[in-house]
C-alpha cells in the first residue's frame, strides 16, 4: 500500500538548509495499523505531510497504492488526496455551524458523487465511526470533543480511502475520550480492514497500533510489531 524509499526533506537551501528527514524507508501493507511515534521536532509531522500528499519529498520515492506520487503538481496531489487519503486532525477541523451530515459529506462534493447518493454514504461512514444516530443532524459546534473527532473520522472514511492518516487524533481530548477514539480506530482496522497510520508523540497512544515506527532526528530509530496488540488480536490473523 505504502512504499517509502530513502525519503529526505530539506527546508531552505544553501547555508540555511535544514534537513528534517534524512533518508526514511519503510513499507506499510494493506490493512495494517501503524503508529509513527517521535518527540516534537523529530520530523514526524513532515513525514505525515508527505504521506498525506500535502507535500512532496526533496528526494526519494513514495509509492502509494501502486502510483509514484513523489513528484506530482499541486492539483495532482489534490486528486490523490481526494481519492486515496482520509485525514483526521488533532483539532478536528469541522465546518462550524454546519450539520454533522454536511460535514461528513463534504469530501463527496469534491469527488463528484451525485448529491442523492451522498447522504447514504455519509450515514454509512457515521455508523462505522460509531456516532449515535441522534447526533447526525446536530450542528458540529454543538458536539463534545469526542463526538467531533468521530465526525472527523467518519469524514475521513466516507470516500473509502486507501489509507487513513490520523495526526495526533487524541491531542485535544481527555484520556478517557481519547481511549474511546483510539478504540474506534482499532475497530475500523480489525472489523473493516482499513489501513491506518497514526502519528503521535505519546507512547500510550502509539501502543494502540499493531506496529510502531519510532522516529528521531529525521531517521527511523526502531520499527517493530507491538507485542501487546498482536497478542490481543483475534486468531484468524
Amino acid at each position: 500500500m505504502i512504499v517509502c524509499t530513502n525519503i529526505t526533506k530539506t527546508y531552505g537551501t544553501g547555508e540555511t538548509a535544514t534537513p528534517v528527514l534524512k533518508g526514511i524507508s519503510f513499507t506499510i501493507k494493506e490493512g495494517e495499523f501503524v503508529a509513527i511515534m517521535g518527540p516534537s521536532g523529530s520530523g514526524k509531522s513532515t513525514l505525515m505531510h508527505i504521506l498525506g500528499c500535502l507535500d512532496t519529498p526533496t528526494s526519494g520515492t513514495y509509492v502509494l497504492a501502486g502510483h509514484d506520487v513523489s513528484e506530482l503538481s499541486d492539483d495532482e496531489l489534490a486528486e490523490v488526496r481526494k481519492n486515496k487519503i482520509g485525514f483526521v486532525f488533532q483539532s478536528f477541523n469541522l465546518l462550524p455551524r454546519a450539520s454533522v451530515l454536511r460535514n461528513v459529506a463534504l469530501p463527496l462534493s469534491y469527488a463528484g458523487v451525485p448529491r442523492e447518493k451522498r447522504e447514504a454514504q455519509a450515514v454509512r461512514a457515521l455508523a462505522a465511526a460509531g456516532l449515535l444516530e441522534d447526533r447526525w443532524h446536530h450542528l458540529s459546534n454543538q458536539l463534545s470533543g469526542g463526538q467531533m473527532q468521530r465526525v472527523a473520522i467518519a469524514r475521513a472514511l466516507v470516500n473509502s480511502p486507501a489509507i487513513i492518516l490520523a495526526d495526533e487524533p487524541t491531542g485535544n481530548l481527555d484520556t478517557k475520550t481519547g481511549e474511546i477514539v483510539l478504540g474506534t480506530f482499532q475497530e475500523l482496522n480489525r472489523a473493516h480492514r482499513h489501513t491506518i497510520v497514526l502519528i503521535t508523540h505519546e507512547r500510550y497512544v502509539a501502543e494502540h497500533a499493531d506496529r510502531i515506527i519510532h522516529i528521531q532526528d529525521g531517521a527511523i530509530l526502531k520499527d517493530a510489531k507491538n507485542p501487546r496488540t498482536i497478542a490481543a488480536r483475534p486468531s484468524h490473523e
Binding site: D75, E79, K82, N93, Y110, A111
Partner: peptide
C-alpha cells in the same frame, strides 16, 4: 484559513 486548508486536504483544487 483553516477551513480552506481542510478543504484542500480533502481534495479541493485551486479552482474549487
Amino acid at each position: 484559513t483553516r477551513e480552506i486548508g481542510l478543504r484542500k486536504a480533502i481534495g479541493a483544487k485551486r479552482r474549487d
